[in-house]
Write a protein that binds this DNA or RNA. Structure first.
Lengths: 103, 103
DNA sequence: CATCTCCGTAAGAATTGACTTACCGTAAGT
DNA sequence: ACTTACGGTAAGTCAATTCTTACGGAGATG
């Protein structure tokens, strides 16, 4: 439930794919699994990781579990990125301005 | 050298720490290693991953290797995030507008 | 040239991660 | 109540990560 977990969660290609599918449209587990080359239990496990990271949410609908993206999860990632974006630019600017350390 | 590798690279806490240190100021390997609870070779290996992901660059200075952040690396991450940011918000909006799928 | 510092690479051990099959519970339909 | 559809959890396997120690090479210093 923090940006750290979000990085780890989205590091896996299958989980990124899941997230991207859910970003297009909320879906139950079966629909997600049918579009991926892995078993349904594997999808369940990946969804758990995404949910623990706060990137997706679940909603029960009959026997189905509809997963959907959670904007706040991405927002945390954005926050981290913005936090370091300025620093990175500044560090880079300083680097090209004085190429040798001692100058 | 793509956003996929960037996610994988920043998924590791030690590598994130390295990146954050370099965002504050370019540094040689030894300086980085002395501030982390892992051996210097481990730091070298992590830096290789970050470099392969395009998140940092190296510059030789005598026997030292000065590592520095590479803005373009972060930019790729930003691009992915922005790409899905709108989708996520739209999917979320649709989700709260019509709570049951068939509506 | 001898030596010291700095750092990348190799090799191997230990941990973590992703996947599979098997199984169980819950909801809906007949 | 029986059966079928849906999906989470458990256990085990195999590959990928992460770390360590040992080593080697390239640059600075006497």
């Amino acid at each position: 439930m923090s940006y750290e977990d979000s990085f780890a969660a989205l590091a896996d290609p299958t989980r990124r794919h899941l997230f991207e599918m859910l970003a297009a449209e909320p879906m139950p587990v079966g629909a997600l699994a049918s579009r991926l080359p892995v078993s349904r239990p594997a999808v369940s496990q990946h969804l758990k990781v995404l949910a623990d990271a706060g990137l997706v949410t679940v909603r029960a609908e009959g026997t189905r579990r509809i997963y959907a993206v959670r904007p706040q999860g991405l927002a945390e990632l954005r926050a981290w990125l913005d936090r370091y974006w300025d620093e990175v630019l500044a560090a880079f600017a300083a680097e090209i301005t004085k190429p040798t350390k001692g100058n």
